[in-house]
């Protein structure tokens, strides 16, 4: 992208470039401001939040919102559950994805075209919500932790990404050499392919992990017991349905203070729920970009 400036820019070009910069700055502000607003509000006092004094920086710095969150058992259980679903879910996801993607990437694997067709059909057509629900119900895993792990055990898109990676980055000669040396397929996958595939494994882990952490749909339809709820469902109850049990308001003796704390809590809760993902994001951005690009190669 090295464009030399040997020829002087015309007035029109300069104007165009200025408009581009202004446009990008507006977008930058429009994306950044709501995030900053949430963050600053969460560190302000309840009074400052309700009266709309917070504009850019925290007003009357306080940690009241965060104190309320960390003393709330419901939110903490949700956090724990979400961690559990994310860790176990990702383990299952990555195993199944590799188990399917690797054979599909081998040209010596007879039947791979048929399996690809089977895979792609599921992307274009689905049985629908009700049959999906009834299937899970008939397996007897409704309202158990399995309902959060098994129905989403593998994503077709990720299988295609992994397959494309294996196909393009593992030299065929390597496989043939290993075969001559008497290495089995699984041995080759375990000892040679996987160590060479760390970048794609990172892509898979991250994509699946974000998916699990942010998901709420399966929990909404499959879970009834409070103790199993992931964080997102707890968030929905508090943030959107507004149902906060008044016992969780720790030092709220006065009604007014309680209302204020209730509003403040929403801001802090948004921060607490989003930080785990956003904090690692700048470091792993390249993996996501990679994932999107490998996925689009085949499209």
């Amino acid at each position: 992208m090295a464009r030399t400036n040997a020829i002087r820019e015309s007035f029109g070009d300069k104007l165009f470039l200025t408009i581009v910069y202004i446009f990008l700055s507006i977008i930058l502000l429009a994306v950044l401001y709501p995030l900053i607003y949430i963050l600053s509000s969460s560190f302000s006092s309840p009074q400052a939040v309700i009266s709309g004094k917070v504009w850019l920086l925290p007003v009357d710095f306080s940690l009241a919102g965060y104190k309320a969150i960390f003393s709330n058992p419901q939110i903490m259980t949700g956090y724990g559950n979400s961690l559990f679903y994310t860790v176990c879910g990702v383990l299952i996801n990555v195993c199944l994805t590799v188990m399917l993607a690797y054979p599909l990437s081998k040209s010596t694997f007879y039947g791979r075209h048929l399996i690809m067709v089977i895979l792609i059909i599921t992307m274009m057509f689905s049985g629908g919500l009700i049959p999906y629900y009834l299937t899970v119900k008939s397996l007897g895993i409704l309202n158990t932790r399995w309902a959060m792990l098994l129905p989403g055990a593998m994503a077709v898109w990720q299988v295609i990404i992994a397959r494309t990676f294996f196909q393009s980055s593992i030299p065929k000669e390597l496989g043939e050499a290993a075969e001559l040396d008497g290495c089995t397929d699984i041995g080759f996958l375990w000892r040679v392919v996987l160590p060479l595939s760390k970048p794609i494994l990172a892509v898979l882990v991250l994509m699946y992990a974000v998916g699990h952490w942010n998901a709420y749909f399966d929990a909404l339809i499959f879970l009834k017991t409070q103790g199993l709820f992931p964080l997102q469902i707890v968030l929905r109850n508090i943030l959107i349905l507004n149902s906060i049990d008044s016992s969780m308001m720790v030092d709220a003796n006065k009604m007014a203070a309680m209302q204020g704390l209730r509003d403040l809590l929403k801001f802090s809760l948004i921060v607490v729920a989003t930080v785990p993902v956003l904090a690692i994001y700048p470091f792993v951005q390249k993996y996501f970009v990679q994932g999107i690009l490998i996925g689009s190669l085949k499209g």
């Binding site: 188990m99 399996i115 629908g128 009700i130 009834l134 299937t135 397929d185």
Partner: peptide
Amino acid sequence: RHWQLYLLVLLPLAYLVIFKYVPMYGAQIA
């Protein structure tokens, strides 16, 4: 010679059948 590859795809295929194709078959409920 490559029986292990078929072993590998068994579990993922079972997943597809149970959670994708059984519901498709179940769409006859409509």
